[in-house]
């Protein structure tokens, strides 16, 4: 049967890798290619790469870096950041990326999802959403500068994106980013029950238990984490890690619960 996925998420800035807290205070982790090689050696299920400068600074993706990372990775890669045209997307796929994630462009160029999906197939298009709580605790969708960018309800947006041709939903929980507080299981459930697509979920993971919880109670297909796989200890020393195959067996065999 299909196995649940455990996915490190890496943030690119220039040629370096960083980790943020609540989308701010980026901490430098190391050279992007080296870190990707370490994750490849650990046989991770998948890697997600996000260029946190591309959209903000309106820059095209860093194609040469993406190509170098892809050539040392023998697992699926998702890339997000600065993709606004079919031509850019073509170059990304050609460099060895399987899936592209759209975030800013979802709201800036609403027709792009359909265009990309028609051309490359829905399975290669990930709709990436930053979710936050407003003052009343309601879930809102925000852009990378944390400004609200969608007025309707989250379930309606999920439906719209599915109909437009997205093949996967990626949720980035801004309030829990880098906090090690555990995943918001209610948000995971809300997204899964309102989407027929695979859902990958990021924000707050601090332990394998958290991962198990979001996969089986939350119902997501992919548990995504940053800090958990790049830091060690309370002082956040940089240490690249990933569960061993025995640990993965314990996490993803749901019948052991």
């Amino acid at each position: 049967m299909l196995k649940k996925r455990i996915i490190p998420s890496l943030l690119l800035k220039g040629n370096g890798l960083y980790k943020t807290t609540k989308f701010s205070n980026p901490i430098y982790l190391g050279d992007a290619i080296n870190v990707a090689k370490i994750f490849n050696a650990k046989e991770v299920d998948e890697l997600m790469l996000f260029d946190i400068d591309s959209s903000k600074l309106n820059k095209a993706p860093n194609f040469s870096l993406i190509k170098d990372i892809a050539s040392s990775c023998f697992m699926p890669l998702t890339y997000g950041g600065g993709i606004e045209t079919i031509e850019n997307a073509k170059k990304i796929f050609k460099s060895g990326i399987e899936k592209i994630a759209l975030n800013t462009a979802l709201f800036k160029k609403p027709r792009l999802v359909k265009e990309l999906s028609d051309y490359f197939g829905r399975q290669s298009i990930v709709a990436s959403l930053n979710v936050k709580r407003d003052l009343f605790g309601r879930y809102i969708v925000v852009n990378n500068s944390l400004k609200k960018c969608y007025d309707g309800r989250l379930p309606d947006l999920l439906l719209e994106l599915t109909e437009a041709g997205a093949g996967e939903i990626f949720i980035n929980d801004v309030d829990r980013d880098g906090t090690l507080k555990g995943y918001d299981i209610n948000l995971a459930k809300l997204v899964c029950s309102n989407s027929g697509l695979p859902v990958s979920f990021c924000g707050g993971a601090s332990s394998f238990e958290d991962i198990k919880e979001v996969l089986f109670e939350g119902g997501v297909s992919g548990a995504v984490a940053g800090s958990l796989f790049v830091f060690s200890g309370p002082r956040k020393a940089v240490l690249i890690s990933y569960p061993s195959s025995d640990d993965i067996q314990k996490i993803i065999s749901s019948d052991e619960r």
């Binding site: 049967m1 299909l2 996925r5 399975q123 093949g167 027929g196 695979p198 297909s221 992919g222």
Partner: peptide, 18 residues
Amino acid sequence: DSTYLGQKRIVPHMGWNS
């Protein structure tokens, strides 16, 4: 099909399988 034997089935089939 997005359902199989009355159960919801996620499409695309995405991930590791044997």
